[in-house]
Design a protein around this nucleic acid. Structure first.
Length: 169
DNA sequence: TCCATGATTGTTGCT
DNA sequence: AGCAACAATCATGGA
């Protein structure tokens, strides 16, 4: 306790089981922009259409947790604080409680796949160069045609399993 | 002035 | 099959 921790990058050596503990994106920035200043490199392949990865169950939970956390700790503005608190709480949650978050995350994944499908196709079209073209079979293209699957956000029905409203404890 | 970082876990994509 | 980077957030620091 009182490890002083402060901003110390050091995070305990509990990662004995995990081979890679450098999860800290320390060096690998998230939105890395290669040529923001240069902007001259024609290699700047920025894909505005490229869909971002879907938020995992943890992130879904975090979104809600952040709101709550900020309300209880309006003084705390450090993103790391929420991350740590959220991570701790997340571990405290049981699978049943994480289920609803995972369910939502799973849905997100489906949408992501669709976006990727469209994105991939677009890229293939654009990517003319004769470089090892994957030659995508033009069989599955209904992605856009589709019968109008408006996923929308219906949180009712389905998932008859975890339906217990544990409500606050 | 503006981009990058920090911190969490999970998930996806590439090799 | 495994590894690596990235997904949100938001204030602050360095250039």
């Amino acid at each position: 306790m009182t490890t002083g921790k402060g901003k110390g990058p050091v995070r305990k050596s509990k990662e004995v089981l995990k081979p890679v503990d450098d999860r800290k994106v320390g060096k690998r920035k998230a939105a890395y922009k290669p040529d923001i200043s240069s902007a001259k490199s024609k290699k700047a392949k920025k894909d505005p259409n490229k869909p971002k990865r879907p938020p995992s169950a943890f992130f879904v939970f975090l979104e809600e947790f952040r709101k709550t956390f900020k309300e209880q700790n309006p003084n705390v503005k450090a993103v790391s604080a929420v991350g740590k608190a959220g991570g701790a709480k997340w571990k405290s949650l049981t699978e049943a409680e994480k289920a609803p978050y995972e369910a939502k995350a799973a849905k997100r994944k489906v949408e992501y796949e669709k976006l990727m499908n469209a994105y991939n196709r677009k890229q293939a079209s654009s990517a003319v160069d004769g470089d090892a073209e994957s030659e995508v079979n033009d069989e599955e293209d209904e992605a856009s045609g589709e019968e109008g699957h408006q996923v929308e956000d219906e949180e009712d029905e389905d998932e008859g399993d975890e339906e217990d409203e544990e409500d606050d404890e």
